[in-house]
């Protein structure tokens, strides 16, 4: 049985490396995106094999699902922009191969040259060798598992991963939430949102399926959030599931969705970070340190923060997919 598992791991590893290589080597962008999604799913399998189901869930939902959707919609926008440019200026002269910007263009679109092969290979071998040497001399350590286990009773939750993320290392999670918000602010600062050039599928099949899938996705998202206190799950995974439901709705009815009201949308987007910050500041005032909780209050506070974070992450992912701040609220 063990031999079979080793065989499975080797096949999985070969698949991951192979798909990654095909993804990077592909000159067709659409194919590269599809391969990237496949890569994310294989990576999720690898996390399962490493007994890290929390990361596997997050990788499958965010790494493969949402990022794949973001890349696909970017590709779609890119195509429509390029088509517009081409139709606007039909007589673009072909680029001069020896012109002043030839080097810059060569950087963006390098021709496949055989003589780059040897330097690239030797560089890869040197870096790989250094990595292997560094990993070889790692001292064997049990990590922080005993420390976490010893403090589980004051964490307020029963799942060690959630205890680390929301209590022992809450600072990291707070910054992760802030990064999602900053990414959205970056996207909004680039301009107002224009309609996705998606082509909604005619016919009753897609809306019918969505009527079925969206409630299931909401129930699953809330379940994953709730399960986070004692089993794999939590705010990021739940937020990704809810965000995926929102993205499906946006994709299926790009022209018919009502415009999101500005103030509630902004409140929802910032709820996670704001609540986390408030609780953290209260901990500072009350003497538990920044982002520390009183032991008795740990569970309700963690639950509250997780709910707000889920809402913010889901809204932020949908808003990132739509891209650009909502039209008509420049107030």
């Amino acid at each position: 049985m063990n031999g079979l598992l080793v065989l499975f791991d080797l096949v999985l590893l070969a698949g991951i490396v192979g798909v990654a290589w095909r993804c990077l080597a592909s000159t067709d962008l659409f194919r590269a995106v599809v391969l990237f999604i496949t890569f994310g799913l294989l990576l999720a399998l690898a996390w399962v094999r490493l007994e890290a189901p929390d990361i596997a869930l997050a990788e499958a939902a965010i790494g493969a699902g949402i990022t794949g959707a973001l890349l696909l919609v970017t590709l779609e926008r890119l195509r429509s922009i390029m088509a517009e440019r081409r139709s606007g200026r039909p007589h673009t002269p072909p680029p001069d191969p020896t012109g002043p910007h030839a080097l810059l263009r060569a950087l963006h679109d390098p021709p496949p040259e055989r003589r780059t092969f040897i330097p690239a290979l030797s560089f890869a071998l040197v870096v790989g060798g250094l990595l292997v040497t560094a990993l070889w001399h790692q001292p064997h350590s049990t990590g922080l598992e005993p420390v976490v286990d010893a403090h589980m009773d004051i964490s307020g939750v029963d799942h060690p991963i959630t205890a680390v993320l929301l209590n022992f290392r809450a600072y990291d999670t707070f910054l992760e939430l802030a990064i999602v918000l900053i990414a959205l602010l970056g996207a909004w600062s680039l301009g107002r949102h224009d309609l996705i050039p998606a082509r909604p599928a005619p016919g009753p099949i897609l809306p019918g399926t969505l009527r079925l899938l969206v409630p299931v996705a909401i129930v699953t998202g809330v379940y994953v959030l709730w399960a986070g206190s004692h089993a794999p799950g939590g705010a990021f995974q739940a937020g990704a599931i809810l965000g995926a439901a929102g993205i499906l709705l946006v994709l299926a009815r790009p022209r018919q969705l009502p415009m999101a009201p500005g103030v509630p949308l902004r409140l929802g987007l910032t709820a996670g970070v704001a609540l986390f910050l408030l609780v953290g500041l209260y901990g500072l005032v009350a003497g538990h340190g920044f982002l520390g909780y009183a032991d008795a209050w740990a569970y309700p506070l963690i639950l509250l923060i997780e709910v707000a974070a889920t809402l913010s992450i889901a809204l932020a992912l949908v808003a990132l997919f739509v891209a650009g701040r909502p039209a008509g609220d420049d107030a």
Binding site: F30, R31, P202, I205, L206, T209
Partner: peptide
């Protein structure tokens, strides 16, 4: 449900727009 919908959408897109063309 998801597989049926995806198959339907791929088939319908092919029916109205023709076979998928790559960028190359």
């Amino acid at each position: 449900a998801a597989g049926t919908t995806a198959a339907h959408m791929v088939a319908q897109r092919t029916w109205t727009h023709g076979e998928f063309e790559s960028d190359r």
